[in-house]
Design a binder for these strands. Structure first.
Lengths: 255, 255
DNA sequence: TTTTTCTGTTCGGGCATTACGAATTTCCGT
DNA sequence: ACGGAAATTCGTAATGCCCGAACAGAAAAA
């Protein structure tokens, strides 16, 4: 089952290449010396990497500041387009967003992390700081916990071993057993809540998207606490979510 | 003006790293030996690169087949979210798609290539093979030609020198002078057409999005030839496009 | 202006690391 | 169980990175 074995002879230069790009991302751009300081490498090395990345088109430079380039969106968009779930879910996300006026989100798992595969913004939705494609820890969101809930237990253990249970806010679940209890509850309820666990003032409800008995993703609606009360969730949001998940599940398998 | 100078000492390993990922993309995945054959490198090298890329999370492996991973969508989505144009244009794209029922697209330029920054699919739209983030040659699309039309001539010359004018279909403009004539016409008309120049059976109309007198992107509606006749374009599509472009231009500068 | 102090860039030598071919193991299908 | 092809490991050779130092160029201070 594709054991992610440590490479015996890793290509270190490739690793540092991505370390550099990731640093540019986490610091919203950097100059040559800034990057050299951040990664504790000689300026000349930083210079060489940035210049080659720029030349290859993966990094853009505007008077000294280097930034992550849109070229990555080509690779990422391609990867996304290969996901069957993406094409069948997109129209349903749009319908969900239109029906609720809030954000509708789709998350999938890769390498033990959650990836926002797509989203659609309803006309009432308040703008979020998160973006399509963003990768998040699975245990920190309703979407992610939904996915974990439907994965085999040993897989979940693997993921925890690999990525740990770092806290995002003070309400994040950080204990192994506590998490498994939460997952059992989600399985039983067939939906997950996120009450300001990831972002202050934001509530979220998520349902699984299954293919047979294996989970392929999770669907959610998220909005400000003021509009996302339990009553509205039960009477409006959840039925819409379940309907959408059903349609996606059907279209997913049926060719 | 950020001259893209050749790096004096390019990091070759970083270059081959991206060559590998791009090859995975253009061949829709590959095994170790396939990749080794494609790039004419030893199997062991191909193996080392693929394993490290897999371990870093940028490539996924499913029984022997390696593919471009969704991790790139994180970087790409981040890069996109930094573009102010993206956030102000997204609601207008949605409105355009709803109003026309067709695909509404937004293209920007980076490194002399066009990047589909966003798109929205109307309910009548036929599914396209292209995807969000896809990078295209500017001279092969109505969107790209619109951008070229509003760039300073020397910049266009630079871009042609760098990327050439390769033909995509038999109707692609491949002659320098022919292109400049087309661009003049686009400036005069303030819109560009694409009549099956990129994809058979698909028509497209594009208008510029300006900020002062510099172009920041181009907006288009595309649909099947059968529905995209001149009459509908003039009476319905173009007015909608112009309205959307105007709103975007206003919101872009204002704060 | 001159001086100072940054940052970006170039250069060259030492050595870590990648490239490479062959050997080995694993995984198929037969 | 066997044969073939693919993946993986191993060891060696030399390429290509690492790194400090020197240089240039621009902005800030004097």
């Amino acid at each position: 089952m594709s054991n992610q074995t440590e490479p015996k002879t890793p290509v270190k230069t490739a690793q540092t290449t991505f370390r550099i790009v990731e640093t540019l991302k986490s610091h919203d751009g950097a100059t040559v010396t800034e990057l050299a300081d951040l990664l504790d490498i000689p300026k000349s090395s930083a210079h060489n990497y940035l210049r080659t990345l720029e030349h290859e088109g993966y990094v853009v430079e505007t008077d000294g500041e280097y930034e992550v380039g849109l070229r990555f969106l080509d690779l990422g968009g391609y990867a996304r387009s290969r996901e069957r779930l993406f094409s069948v879910a997109t129209p349903e996300l749009k319908r969900l967003a239109d029906a609720t006026g809030e954000y509708a989100n789709l998350l999938v798992e890769e390498h033990g992390l959650g990836v926002f595969l797509a989203r659609d913004r309803g006309d009432q939705a308040v703008s979020l700081d998160s973006y399509t494609g963003q990768s998040v820890r699975l245990h920190t969101t309703a979407l992610g916990k939904t996915i974990l809930a439907y994965l085999p237990r040993e897989r979940v253990e693997e993921i925890i071993d690999r990525h740990g249970l770092p806290a995002k806010t003070e309400r994040t679940i950080t204990e192994r057993e506590e998490l498994f209890e939460a997952l059992a509850e989600i399985r039983q309820r067939e939906c997950a809540y996120d009450r300001e666990e990831r972002i202050k003032g934001l509530n979220c409800v998520a349902v699984p998207v299954l293919s047979g008995d294996t989970i392929t993703g999770a669907l959610s609606v998220s909005g400000p606490v003021s509009r996302m009360d339990q009553d509205r969730i039960d009477s409006e949001i959840l039925p819409e979510l379940r309907r959408a998940a059903n349609i996606i599940e059907l279209n997913q398998t049926h060719s």
